[in-house]
Design a protein around this nucleic acid. Sequence first.
DNA 1: AAGCATATATAAGTAACTTAGGCATGCCAA
DNA 2: TTGGCATGCCTAAGTTACTTATATATGCTT
Lengths: 109, 109
Amino acid sequence: MSRPSDLIQGTLDLLILKTISIEPMHGWAIGKRIQQVSDEALQITQGALYPALHRLEQQGWISAEWRVTETGREAKFYRLTKAGRTQLEKELAQWERLSNAVGLVIRMA
Amino acid sequence: MSRPSDLIQGTLDLLILKTISIEPMHGWAIGKRIQQVSDEALQITQGALYPALHRLEQQGWISAEWRVTETGREAKFYRLTKAGRTQLEKELAQWERLSNAVGLVIRMA
DNA sequence: AAGCATATATAAGTAACTTAGGCATGCCAA
DNA sequence: TTGGCATGCCTAAGTTACTTATATATGCTT
């Protein structure tokens, strides 16, 4: 039962925070954007996406506002809060530190 | 309760497989080695380590044998099986693919 | 009018971890 | 000689983030 998994566990928050740090965006678009920017390598399912957004909002790292999309539909737009920006920096540093460490191990001779 | 987490979820199997691909090693030593090679960035707790070893053994990717360590103690030495080597290649490729994808997203302008 | 893409959401199940123990042995210091 | 620490193995309970499946609604196109 090898699940190919199109996501590294625990990186979703980082991916979302980074994505809306560029510009506020609604959930559906966030998923699409991550997929696109990652060159289709990362697939964000809705069952992972929406709970993650709610988590981040509850932490106070993002805030939501209903607005109308370019295509004329209601959607919930998320933006980074100030605390969210701090959190993003923290998660970026953590990712660099740990992914680098993995690199050291897997390149061990 | 921010758990700093000294591990990227899902990478432990890869780390273990890689480590014993260099040379067979007992559990305790595997944990120490990963910690050392990663420059102390990765901390493998025993509660994560031993279940992971049993998982990998059950998958047929590693095999165990009781031997005596250099310091004269009984320890369970693990080595990669042939299937384990294949699995290691697979997990290496998966890690490269996904960590690279994360890199694309977090460096998005 | 049907079907698809967009858009949000939740519930049940699973896997991998964290935390917190427990057990046994060899070695060293007091 | 015994008390403590490092070594070495192990498991159970709890948490968390995911996967899979499902539900709902709207706008556009055929």
